[in-house]
Write a protein that binds this DNA or RNA. Structure first.
Length: 323
DNA sequence: AGATGTTCCTGTCTGC
DNA sequence: TGCAGACAGGAACATC
């Protein structure tokens, strides 16, 4: 279940393998994985063949590769503009998507959806594969558009002041050096909704999914239904700081277990096993309450069509008004 | 217009 | 052993 740390691990892994390499051929094994590409699979392939990957960048959970030369199938206008990437290969991993670097002799994965054959480079695998069991993820080609907020953001990528059009509405994530808490808090206070729904809204703050939202809320001792327009500044700071900590922990775990050949989304599985305090702990003792000598069992509730885990003792449900 | 509900997909697990 | 149903969830889209 890739959330931001997993996507960042993929980005970091991928960049050293694909930057500067040319896409020689594209094989779409399952066209259902070509999402949101209005002109269809053939156009998708035409835009990519012959293009060179300039970089791998990210905004929230959207990951894309700006392309230096567009493929033979791109418009003449696009091809003539020199030096500056105009389009990008966009990937969203959804829930089960993986981007893998594989040698040509490695058998196809069961859920292989798209294969990119890259120009050969010494000692490097020459296939980039998109594998996706549930087809919640997808690939498409998107225009790069100017942005006045300093580029895609994220960690350590190029300062190109262009962002993929399909990711332009996505807010910065809490790990982004340019993340603005003031902007987040101003917008949060204007919302009339519950705190967890706001945390999951990628247009408000990006990178937080269901699991890390529950973890951040637990660590901040806040209930998921807390009305956003009653949230005090210190409380909002707390939940963002905790989300940041959770993601940094996961990033560290993913980074250390990351095997150089495999650009995958499983880097954080060890983290999930060891470090979750809220998610999936229905019926188990709240760790914080237990440490304080209080007995309280974690509760699971349906919220937004998914599970939410809270401690009834240290994350009390908000009562009307009164904050 | 902003808030909320629905939908896409398939492997795994549970209960009968 | 088989089968049906629940469940997992990011984000676009539909609907209030």
């Amino acid at each position: 279940m890739p959330e931001l740390p997993e996507v960042e691990v993929v980005r970091r892994g991928l960049v050293s393998w694909v930057r500067g390499r040319t896409i020689d051929a594209v094989e779409v094994v399952d066209p259902r994985s070509i999402r949101r590409h209005a002109l269809g699979t053939e156009d998708f392939i035409g835009n990519l063949q012959g293009a060179t990957v300039r970089d791998v960048v990210r905004r929230g959970k959207f990951l894309w590769m700006p392309l230096l030369d567009t493929g033979a199938g791109a418009s003449a206008e696009t091809r003539e503009s020199a030096g500056v990437p105009q389009v990008a290969l966009m990937a969203h991993l959804g829930m089960s998507g993986q981007l893998l670097m594989q040698g040509r002799d490695v058998p196809d994965e069961k859920h292989l959806k798209v294969r990119f054959r890259l120009s050969p480079r010494n000692g490097m695998p020459d296939q980039l594969r998109f594998v996706d069991q549930r087809i919640f993820g997808g690939l498409f080609v998107t225009d790069l558009v100017p942005t006045d907020d300093g580029g895609p953001g994220g960690l350590g990528e190029s300062p190109l002041p262009l962002i993929a059009g399909e990711a332009a509405h996505i807010a910065r994530d809490p790990l982004d050096p340019a993340f603005s808490f003031d902007l987040f808090y101003r917008r949060l206070r204007k919302r009339k909704t519950g705190l967890k729904r706001a945390l999951l809204d990628q247009g408000l703050v990006s990178g937080i999914g269901n699991i890390y939202a529950d973890e951040a809320l637990w660590r901040a001792r806040l209930h998921y239904a807390r009305p956003t327009d009653t949230l005090r500044r210190a409380e909002a700071e707390r939940v963002i700081a905790e989300a940041r900590e959770v993601m940094l922990d996961a990033l560290a775990a993913g980074g250390t277990s990351f095997d150089s050949l495999y650009v995958n989304v499983n880097g954080a599985s060890g983290y999930f096993d060891r470090s979750l305090n809220a998610y999936g702990r229905e019926g188990l003792e709240c760790k914080r309450c237990a440490a304080a000598g209080v007995s309280s069992r974690m509760k699971r509730e349906q919220f937004m069509n998914r599970s939410s885990y809270t401690c009834p003792a240290c994350q009390p449900r908000p009562r009307n008004g009164r904050w």
